Measured scan of single mutants.
Amino acid sequence: DEFHFHWNGRDIRVRGDSEELRRLIEAIKRGELSEEEIERAIEILER
């Protein structure tokens, strides 16, 4: 699976399928994380 979302003017695409990944992306979409937490998560996910 590939998750695709927009954040902070960026087009983010992440491959993978796990419950943890889904929860993280939902939290990002709901605005539950700080900008710094989101940046760090995206860096890890894009590897």
Rank of each mutant, 00 (worst) to 15 (best):
E36R: 13
R23K: 11
R15T: 12
V14D: 01
E39D: 13
D17V: 07
G16F: 05
D11H: 13
K29F: 12
E2C: 04
R10P: 00
L33K: 07
K29H: 13
E20G: 09
R40I: 09
I25P: 00
S18V: 09
E20Y: 06
S34I: 08
W7I: 08
E37K: 07
F5N: 00
E39G: 13
I38Q: 04
I42C: 01
G31F: 08
E20F: 07
F5V: 00
R15F: 08
E46P: 06
E35L: 09
L24F: 13
E37N: 06
D17R: 05
G9E: 10
E26A: 12
I12S: 00
E35R: 13
W7M: 05
I25W: 06
E35W: 07
H4N: 08
I38K: 01
R10I: 07
E36K: 15
I42S: 01
R15Y: 05
E20I: 09
I25R: 02
G9C: 12
E37Y: 07
H6F: 03
E36F: 13
E32C: 06
D11M: 15
R13L: 12
D1K: 04
E19L: 11
R10G: 01
D1C: 05
E36Y: 12
L24V: 06
E19R: 06
R22H: 11
E32S: 13
I44N: 13
R23P: 10
D11C: 07
R15A: 14
A41M: 09
G16P: 10
R40W: 10
E46V: 10
F5Y: 04
I12N: 00
I25G: 03
L24W: 09
D1A: 05
R30G: 13
E26Y: 02
W7E: 03
S18G: 11
N8R: 07
R40M: 10
E32Q: 12
L33V: 09
E39T: 14
W7H: 11
F5W: 04
I44A: 14
R40E: 07
E20S: 08
R30V: 08
I28H: 02
E32K: 08
G16I: 08
I25Q: 05
A27Q: 15
R10N: 05
F3C: 04
R22C: 04
E26D: 13
D11T: 15
G31V: 04
A27G: 11
R47G: 14
E20A: 08
I42Y: 04
I38H: 02
E37S: 12
E43V: 14
N8T: 00
D11W: 03
L33Q: 05
E37L: 10
R10S: 04
N8Q: 12
R15K: 15
R30Q: 13
W7Y: 05
I44L: 14
L21V: 11
I38E: 03
D17K: 06
K29M: 14
E36P: 14
E46G: 08
I25A: 07
K29E: 10
R47V: 13
E19W: 04
I38R: 03
A41F: 12
A41S: 10
E43I: 10
E20V: 12
R10W: 00
R13K: 15
V14L: 10
E19Q: 11
A41C: 09
G9R: 00
R10L: 07
H6G: 01
S18W: 07
R10V: 08
L21W: 05
E26L: 08
E36H: 15
L24K: 01
E19N: 09
D11I: 15
E19T: 10
R10H: 05
F5T: 00
G16N: 07
E39C: 07
E46S: 07
R23H: 14
I25M: 10
D1V: 05
D1L: 05
N8M: 08
E46N: 08
L45A: 05
N8E: 08
D11N: 09
R13P: 07
N8W: 00
V14N: 01
I12T: 00
K29D: 07
E2F: 04
E39R: 09
F5H: 00
E37H: 08
G31R: 08
E32T: 12
V14A: 05
I44H: 13
E43N: 12
I42A: 03
R10M: 08
D17W: 06
R40V: 09
F3Q: 02
I28N: 01
A27W: 06
R47E: 15
I28T: 03
D1T: 04
N8S: 00
I38F: 06
R30E: 08
R22Y: 10
F5E: 01
D11R: 11
H4D: 14
I25V: 14
E35A: 14
E2H: 15
R47T: 15
E37V: 07
E19I: 12
E2M: 02
R30M: 12
R40F: 09
L21H: 14
I25N: 02
I28W: 04
D11Y: 11
A41G: 07
R30N: 11
R13C: 04
H6E: 06
L21A: 11
K29C: 03
H4I: 13
E19C: 03
I44Y: 12
W7G: 01
E35M: 12
D11Q: 14
I28F: 05
R40K: 15
G31N: 14
L33D: 03
R23F: 14
R15M: 13
G16H: 07
E35D: 14
E2I: 04
I44Q: 11
L45F: 13
I38M: 12
E35P: 15
R10E: 06
E20M: 09
R22G: 09
I12Y: 10
V14T: 04
G16T: 09
R13S: 12
R15P: 15
I44V: 15
L33E: 02
R47A: 13
E43W: 01
R22Q: 10
E26V: 10
R22S: 10
S18D: 09
A41H: 06
V14E: 00
E19K: 08
E35N: 15
E26K: 07
R23G: 13
G31M: 07
R15L: 11
I12E: 00
S34A: 11
E35V: 14
E43A: 15
D11E: 15
R15W: 06
E36S: 14
K29G: 13
G16Q: 07
E19F: 06
I12Q: 00
E2Q: 02
I12A: 00
R30H: 11
E32I: 11
A41K: 11
F3P: 05
E36V: 14
I28C: 01
A27R: 14
L24D: 00
G16D: 05
G31A: 08
R40A: 09
R10C: 03
D17M: 08
A27L: 11
L24R: 00
E46F: 04
D1Q: 05
N8G: 06
G9I: 00
R13G: 04
L33F: 12
S34T: 14
